[in-house]
Design a protein around this nucleic acid. Structure first.
Length: 229
DNA sequence: GCCAACGTTGGC
DNA sequence: GCCAACGTTGGC
């Protein structure tokens, strides 16, 4: 099993995860239900709703992974796009996600949907490639393995907490799109309006699996053919 | 169920 | 390496 994705978020003790339903509706509300239920039994994976509360569905995603070596609990977290390309069939399971919001987004993913492969926690953060979902969410086995950096002693086999999906490399972007460049658009769009004004990359910067609206995905895609700013 | 302390993410 | 932002923990 190849190491994959941001394997952050230490296993925590305590089982209280989704107690506080402040503003994290999707997250916590679903968590209560999800804990008692096999997530995959849940009806139609709704593609969620726009962050704005409107109904624009999230059909696109952004997934963060670290392209540079970093040792966590004795394991190298490095998994850049080149590592994905080196996998059999260029497919990898996105294990190690230990954040409820990110997990829930993975549970919303459907086969065939596209995601940006984002390089994080590195010299030049930004989007490197496009991948697609090739397997819907299933149990992340690494939560039960003591040797895994993201072993979770609070998760039981009868009622697993964490899920993952499989992604497959689609193509590199024509050019790397740096975070800094998207940030400039984000700031501009915040004041003057535009597709990136609410993009999760900045409004929920710490989320390792994020939804993108079609408008956001399309706009970022157009940057490929534009000169860097 | 509030909220202070703590831990993690991830840009810079 | 620093540290702001923010999610999680757990006492009360």
């Amino acid at each position: 099993m190849p190491p994959k994705s941001r394997k952050r978020g230490k296993p925590k003790k305590g089982e209280r995860a989704a107690k506080r339903a402040k503003k994290v509706q999707i997250d916590t509300a679903e968590e209560q239900i999800a804990e008692g239920l096999d997530s995959n039994e849940k009806t139609t994976k709704s593609s969620g709703k726009g962050a704005s509360g409107t109904k624009e569905p999230f059909s696109f995603w952004l997934m963060k992974s670290e392209p540079e070596s970093r040792i966590e609990n004795g394991v190298d977290m490095k998994f850049g796009v080149e590592d994905l390309k080196a996998e059999p069939n260029q497919i990898a399971c996105w294990d190690g996600v230990r954040n409820y919001q990110a997990r829930n987004f993975m549970r919303d993913m459907m086969v065939g949907q596209l995601a940006f492969f984002y390089h994080s926690n590195c010299k030049e953060p930004g989007i490197a490639a496009i991948v697609k979902i090739v397997k819907e969410s299933y149990v992340d086995h690494t939560q039960f393995e003591k040797k895994e950096p993201h072993y979770d002693c609070t998760s039981k086999k009868e009622n697993p907490k964490w899920s993952m999906v499989d992604v497959q490399f689609v193509r590199m972007l024509k050019r790397f799109i740096p975070l800094a460049e998207m940030k400039k658009y984000h700031q501009e769009h915040k004041t003057q309006g535009g597709p990136l004004k609410n993009v999760a990359l900045f409004t929920k910067a710490r989320l390792s699996v994020q939804p993108l609206t079609k408008g956001e995905f399309d706009f970022i895609s157009t940057l490929e053919d534009k000169k860097p700013i």
